[in-house]
Design a protein around this nucleic acid. Structure first.
Lengths: 86, 86
DNA sequence: TTGACCCATCAGCCGCTGCTGACATATCCT
DNA sequence: AGGATATGTCAGCAGCGGCTGATGGGTCAA
């Protein structure tokens, strides 16, 4: 899926912005967005499929799934968008 | 309308990319995109409404409507997208 | 003026996409 | 084991957005 199309959704854009300052779990996104958990999971699945984020389990609490940005992919996306408007 | 959402469409992204090397008329976009004239006009109206492009009539042939990018707005969009992935 | 050309706008249709609810899975606690 | 918590996945629905055809306005040539 195209990067710009991914960012076209407000929820996904907010998620990526939140991930700028470190990892977060799914429930945090759900609260911040005021959305259901399944909804957030769907968005994260898109972002995961695009390679922009990856998920890891929390060390202490294995029930929590923590998401972090793939900085290399984000950097690539940033340059891709920049060259698109070159 | 959001900039990322505008770029999410392939047609509009192509139009903006084509405008990188100077102005073009509507018919040129239609040919390049393989789309109908009304379709292209709709996309250009969106881009116009967003302030990313502006239209001027051709000097020699007044029937041709030429579109050019608003470089200031494009630059603003570029930085907006860049900070979104900051 | 008449016709041809180029474009903008609009209503309508249709496909895509986000959202939801239900269910399955995984992990932790008791 | 059994229940609670956190998440992933999926079918279904509703709304949005892109595409089209029709129509009207603006411009040029004859």
């Amino acid at each position: 899926m195209d990067v710009a199309q991914l960012l076209g959704d407000r929820s996904r854009a907010t998620i990526l912005a939140m991930l700028a300052d470190g990892p977060h779990c799914v429930c945090e996104f759900a609260i911040a967005l005021g959305a259901r958990q399944s909804n957030v999971s769907n968005h994260l699945a898109r972002l995961r499929q695009a390679g922009l984020v990856r998920s890891t389990r929390h060390e202490a609490n294995g029930r929590l799934q923590y998401y972090e940005r793939d900085e290399a992919a984000v950097e690539a996306a940033r340059t891709a968008l920049s060259t698109l408007l070159r």
